[in-house]
Design a protein around this nucleic acid. Structure first.
Length: 300
DNA sequence: GAGTTTGAAACT
DNA sequence: CAGTTTCAAACTC
């Protein structure tokens, strides 16, 4: 699917998470709930802020050539009135800080953390599930798992066949949860989704060996972040299983390897190869955990 | 690029 | 809870 054109309004780019150019703030996250259901990470003000080199997004071969990777670039928001502190703002709704957006008067950043936390609280008071994935997984009559919009849509004029419709946008059929009128977004009109697609919004349980390791390295972390789509299109929280814990644990594995190799004065090429292999192994573990979880855990 | 349409979120 | 308003994205021209 061709990437949607990104509207770049003639507004001033005012917001950023980056305190200074060339540095990326690593944001530890807190979770709204610790449960087995998909959870959304709400970035919290870090107790210990680490700085990392910022990947050059403009020249990033991955971000810059996302079609070949099947990913879509993060879509910047264009909020003008909400201060990016309401659910109208996709960044805020996804639990992310605004970064390289086109919004005006943005408060969805570290500089306005107090406002932001208040806004989060306010949203949660209105709707405790406000930051949870909208697309849940429900069991069908058979063995197949069917994704469902948890609240359903309320479309009236689009026939649920345009991206105004949250179900259609998520590439799922409208369900009994929907209150739409004149719906044409029926199950048999949609392509079958792959199991991988279905599984993407499930956070994986991190294995104890991985979880036991808790620091950060720049290289591995950035490598993972590059592959992490920042706009979750089929599902707002797709890829959310690559949590910061997972990233940190993976990074730590690689850092440990690197340190060991350095102290033993091992051949550089060999070290590189071992680190790449380990990185691959970590990714496989993440994917396997994700799939296993998807198979074994019924819908909430 | 500007204007219109749409439906979710927010508000009353 | 229902109706209305606000908002930002999707869409059209």
């Amino acid at each position: 699917m061709a990437p949607k054109s990104i509207k770049t309004a003639s507004v001033t780019r005012t917001n950023t998470v980056l305190p200074t150019s060339g540095q990326l703030v690593v944001l530890p996250t807190t979770y709204l709930q610790q449960s087995t259901t998909p959870k959304i990470a709400i970035p919290a003000r870090p107790s210990t802020t680490k700085t990392l080199p910022v990947p050059d997004i403009t020249n990033n071969p991955i971000d810059g050539n996302l079609e070949s990777n099947g990913m879509r670039p993060r879509k910047p928001c264009n909020c003008t009135k909400s201060q990016c502190l309401k659910l109208y703002c996709d960044c805020f709704a996804n639990g992310e800080f605004c970064y390289l957006c086109n919004c005006m008067n943005c408060y969805n950043n570290l500089d306005n953390e107090e406002h932001r936390q208040r806004a989060i609280k306010s949203c949660l008071e209105r709707n405790p599930n406000a930051f949870r994935p909208k697309i849940g997984k429900a069991k069908d009559t058979g063995d197949t798992a069917v994704r469902k919009h948890t609240k359903g849509c309320n479309c009236k004029r689009s026939g649920c066949l345009k991206n105004y419709c949250e179900c259609y946008e998520a590439k799922i059929a409208c369900s009994s949860n929907c209150k739409c009128i004149g719906c044409r977004n029926l199950e048999d009109s949609l392509d079958k989704k792959s199991p991988t697609q279905v599984s993407l919004n499930i956070p994986i349980p991190v294995s104890p060996p991985l979880m036991s390791k808790l620091t950060t390295t720049t290289t591995a972390r950035n490598s993972i972040l590059q592959f992490r789509p920042r706009k979750h299109f089929n599902n707002r929280h797709a890829f959310s299983f690559i949590t910061d814990d997972v990233i940190e644990a993976t990074s730590q594995c690689l850092l440990t390897m690197s340190d060991n190799a350095e102290s033993s004065e091992q051949d550089e090429e060999l070290t590189k190869r071992q680190i790449i292999e380990e990185f691959g192994r970590c990714l496989m573990e993440i994917i396997e955990c994700s799939i296993n979880r998807n198979i074994s855990s019924p819908v909430s």
